[in-house]
């Protein structure tokens, strides 16, 4: 991964430079990225209108559905875009997708428009979106008070 923030601000050494050099410690460094980070991550779930056997859709088919969604809205060339299914849970068809942040909006649009797989009505639910994979590890909106 080649990380190239759009706007970055370096403050190397800063107020600590003299004392750190003297003590042989590392320098203080700060890097702020306000622009696009390289990837965006989406936690999505594929819901069907009618009950579907969970074993019917494995990770290969799921990836195929995602590419089909992209292809149906943005055409053949779009299927060349790298989209990674980082994690897939077959029981509820929940997945974490990774896509370059430049294509993120188009992927989201494609998933929203997708509505039918092998003549069965379905819909993608986008549960969580972030430019940090770490952020998908917790969702405070799911806090249970039980």
């Amino acid at each position: 991964m080649h990380w190239r923030p759009m706007q970055k601000h370096w403050r190397v050494g800063g107020h600590l430079a003299v004392s750190h050099d003297f003590l042989g410690m590392g320098m203080y460094e700060k890097q702020v990225s306000k622009g696009h980070l390289p990837y965006c991550y989406l936690k999505v779930r594929l819901d069907f209108e009618e009950d579907v056997d969970p074993t019917d859709i494995d990770i290969i088919i799921f990836k195929h559905i995602v590419l089909q969604a992209v292809q149906s809205l943005f055409g053949e060339a779009a299927s060349c875009t790298p989209i990674d299914v980082l994690k897939y849970r077959q029981t509820n068809r929940e997945a974490i997708l990774r896509v370059s942040s430049r294509y993120f909006t188009k992927l989201w649009a494609s998933l929203t428009w997708y509505s039918c797989y092998s003549e069965q009505s379905c819909a993608f639910r986008v549960l969580q979106v972030s430019s940090h994979l770490m952020a998908l590890a917790a969702n405070s909106r799911q806090l249970s008070l039980a």
Binding site: E29, V32, L37, C40, S131
Partner: peptide, 15 residues
């Protein structure tokens, strides 16, 4: 889409 709004910010510090 190069001009789509960024999704998040990240600050990295080393000390």
């Amino acid at each position: 889409m190069k001009h789509a709004a960024p999704v998040g910010k990240l600050v990295f510090e080393k000390s």
